[in-house]
């Protein structure tokens, strides 16, 4: 009796939820999902792959962009002072994403209209040129600092060298993989996907992902930042103990 009742409830739920799902798909021409919505920084963390799956039901090209938390960056330039190289010039930039990467289903032969629509939606290296906080008259000087910012981020694998690829598993189902290096900053990452055709955005879909330490790393970090005095005392205690230990072994 009860088994039959449970079965009926399950069937009921299944039928209704599938109706709900088909309705949702009918409204949406672009659907995306992450293989995992969080990246855990564990003690052995050495970078991670971010896998995004998506489905589209209309023809068009796909662009995926991922942005880390925004930071204030300072770019410094060294000059020779009395024969020694020291930082003498700097330029500040606001709102620079701590991490940025993007992927395109069509990398070559983009029309001007397509290039334009991607640029307007923050897709591509060209969108990573930021204006300095303080007005600087010399355009050349600004450009060299802007380029240095991108170059430096690329060197640390926090900005891409070029667009990543999007793999199509069939006409509508696609997948892309982005690599997050081991120095990836913690925080909330925003992922946007665009379906575009002939210079028009047909649909867009956005999601977020968390990058945060877990386990021992998280506990050490929380303890060190929230109870820093006791954390400091523990560090000192460990050192005192080690010093004493060296002595004990020495005397044996």
């Amino acid at each position: 009796m009860t088994i039959r009742f449970v079965t009926m409830v399950v069937l009921f739920v299944l039928v209704f939820s599938s109706i709900g799902l088909t309705q949702a798909y009918a409204q949406k021409t672009l659907t995306i999902d992450l293989a995992s919505d969080h990246v855990d920084i564990t003690t052995g963390f050495n970078g991670a792959n971010l896998i995004l799956y998506g489905m589209k039901d209309r023809p068009g090209e796909i662009a995926v962009v991922i942005r880390g938390p925004e930071k204030k960056m300072t770019v410094r330039k060294k000059n020779r002072v009395l024969g020694l190289w020291m930082n003498t010039e700097h330029m500040d930039f606001d709102g620079v994403p701590a991490y940025y990467d993007y992927a395109l289903s069509k990398k070559e032969g983009l029309s001007d209209a397509e290039e334009q629509v991607l640029f307007e939606n923050g897709v591509g290296l060209a969108t990573l040129i930021y204006e300095p906080r303080d007005a600087v008259p010399e355009r050349d000087r600004i450009q060299s600092f802007q380029q240095a910012l991108i170059r430096n981020k690329q060197l640390n694998h926090l900005f891409p060298m070029e667009a990543g690829s999007i793999e199509f598993l069939n006409d509508d189902f696609f997948r892309t993989t982005m690599y997050l290096p081991s120095n990836v900053p913690r925080g909330t990452y925003e992922i946007e996907t665009f379906l575009f055709r002939q210079g028009q955005i047909i649909d867009r879909s956005a999601t977020t992902m968390m990058v945060a330490p877990v386990g021992l790393n998280a506990r050490v970090y929380d303890f060190a930042t929230q109870k820093s005095f006791y954390y400091g005392l523990i560090c000192i205690f460990i050192a005192v103990f080690a010093g004493w230990l060296i002595n004990v072994i020495r005397n044996k």
Binding site: K71, K72, M73, T74, V75, R76, K77, K78, N79, G83, L84, W85, N87, D92, A98, S144, F145, A148, L149, R151, N152, K153
Partner: peptide, 15 residues
């Protein structure tokens, strides 16, 4: 390091 010409004159930090 102080005397030799650096590989890149520019460096970037988060403020």
């Amino acid at each position: 390091k102080l005397l030799a010409t650096p590989y890149d004159l520019y460096s970037t930090v988060v403020m």
